[in-house]
Design a protein around this nucleic acid. Structure first.
Lengths: 343, 343
DNA sequence: CATTGGCACTCAGTCTGGGTGAGTGCTAAT
DNA sequence: ATTAGCACTCACCCAGACTGAGTGCCAATG
């Protein structure tokens, strides 16, 4: 069993190493922290910690640095929750307070997180949850140019312009409009697409202008489905990652590539969704992905009204300030979910 | 006056340096290129080029590397236009062929450019040109929840949900709808916003539900204006920039920060818009911006139907393959403007 | 038995100096 | 104008000495 003091030593090592980027030795610890014991005693504790693989020595004789396992213990048991400063709370309010559309909001969010944590920040764009078609609108922009608009019950709009082979009269258009709306209003998107496709394929219509219109509507609905199931990430603060380049033994190239890939992070978010903690942390090699072996990911779920639960995160070197990053990620996620949710 | 051969030497130096990242000496030149003269002669030419500040020596005695001015001369007079390979043309077709919505198209474009050029790629999101209100739609989502949709003649849609203080009847809603459409249909966005605001401020209505609706419409129109004047950039290929890190004397940190700022690049695009060449190139310190002093920007305009002319670019170290980057940027811009424009 | 002081040992980092070679600049010959 | 020859410069590499932070172990101590 590891003694209480040994854990305190681990905490000291993590804190000092995060602060200084230098392996920390027994002497430094007794100087900077007031343990009531001598350096030799600390050394004994450190030998213990090393045996447990919580710390390691970069070279035979130098200070120790925390291992992934050491950081894990720190995060799980030792990290004091550091409340955000007043200035930081203020920043969240002013940055996110004046929300406009979703893209803008998420762009602000991700920039805010990058700024608060001095790390690379990522936000997953949340999908709409269980969307139904509310209304289909058809507008003749010109004689043979038709604007087709599909509005979902979540207020999401998808539009597309189609070129018809023959002009269409207002009367015809009205007829098709009524028919389409009768067909799809209130339907789930996928069902609506099928229904429209079936109608367009109907023999008696097949070569008519109306069928063209129906096909256009179907394509627009399909587009909307596509937009909603496209899992996208918004990223900011790449400069912060470059700034911490020295914390990576290889280069940050792999890390940046992995993040640009997006798919890896999306997969990771999926895995993290099952964790019970409000803020989930993946440390170093706990990320099975090659590119993230030297990074930690601090992530939390958030939800916006009418949208699926989604995630935001910061990504940085394992040598990061977990306390404040966890606090910042949690605060932003909560702000998004509560302040904006109850609005 | 600089002799013909001296210029050929400059070309050789640029090409070799771009290929090898190593200062190139007189001996290397006579070995790799078949000038019919000895190294000493080349040295004389090099002395000339150095006098003209087209090349410079990193240390007293080592090979020469091109200066910004040298690259400029290379680009203006010496760079052979390198046609894209069949594979590259193919890539453009398959990547951009199946276009869906604008965001998706631009995301593909920027990724494609990053891949083709192995540089960081940027695309400016084009605004709609001279937009008018086509139609305003009001939908009661619930008794006191109103969905307000503004559709422009370019097919751009902006929607927003408002909470009313009192329920509104279908009849009232119809009346307001007609009134609003009469007011704003066909108007430019800015005028429409003013007109609606005036109507809402009208004394006899001021405290009515109708006024609330009008204000909602006004806000939605204003949102649409905002979205359209928001100049945004889409970026991809940051990993490529990191890969060329050694080409930067400082660190790439400043470069990445500058690009994340966006505003600098947008300003640069504004300046480049006046250039007469199809593809504009800014080399090193020609970019007055601090952060881009060691980078070159290769940029071209493109236009999509119904949108303002906009720009795309690649950004990389001054030591880049100008011939192929220029070719790639031009090809992508043309593809966007022509293939998609005539669609 | 935990703690401590003492001490030998290890080893990364730094500094030094000589050697090497690529490459130049100059000069005199062609 | 071009060339060969030659002295010179200077970044780079290597090996060796030195330094100092830090460890590991042991014997002494309360």
């Amino acid at each position: 069993m590891i003694s209480e003091r040994s854990l305190a030593v681990l905490r000291a090592i993590v804190q000092d190493y995060v602060a200084s980027r230098e392996p920390v030795g027994s002497k430094t610890i007794v100087e900077r922290h007031s343990f009531g014991v001598s350096a030799a005693t600390i050394r004994n504790d450190m030998a213990l910690l090393e045996e447990e693989e919580l710390i390691a020595a970069p070279h035979t004789s130098s200070g120790r640095i925390p291992t992934d396992k050491g950081y894990r213990m720190f995060v799980d048991q030792l990290a004091a929750m550091r409340p955000l400063s007043a200035a930081q709370r203020q920043a969240i309010d002013t940055f996110l307070g004046e929300s406009s559309d979703l893209d803008e909001l998420l762009a602000r969010t991700v920039r805010l997180m990058a700024q608060l944590t001095k790390q690379l920040a990522v936000v997953q764009v949340p999908n709409f949850s269980s969307v139904r078609v509310q209304h289909v609108e058809l507008v003749a922009v010109a004689a043979t140019r038709l604007l087709c608009i599909v509005i979902s019950d979540a207020g999401q709009v998808e539009q597309r312009v189609t070129e018809l082979t023959a002009p269409i009269t207002d009367a015809e258009l009205s007829a098709v409009r009524s028919k389409v709306n009768a067909l799809v209003a209130g339907q789930m998107l996928a069902d609506a697409a099928t229904a429209v496709a079936a109608a367009a394929g109907d023999a008696e219509l097949a070569r008519s202008t109306a069928a063209q219109v129906l096909r256009a509507v179907g394509a627009t609905i399909t587009d909307q489905v596509k937009v909603q199931t496209s899992h996208r990430l918004v990223v900011a603060g790449a400069a912060n990652l470059v700034r911490t380049e020295q914390d990576f033994s290889g280069s940050i190239l792999g890390v940046i590539e992995t993040i640009e890939e997006q798919v890896v992070l999306l997969k990771l978010f999926g895995e993290m969704a099952t964790e019970q903690h409000e803020v989930a942390v993946r440390i170093g090699r706990e990320n099975t992905e090659q590119g993230l072996a030297e990074t930690s990911v601090v992530s939390s779920a958030f939800s916006l009204p009418g949208r699926d639960i989604s995630r935001l995160a910061v990504v940085g070197p394992t040598r990061m300030d977990y306390s404040s990053n966890i606090a910042a990620v949690r605060a932003v996620a909560r702000y998004l979910s509560r302040a904006l949710g109850s609005e």
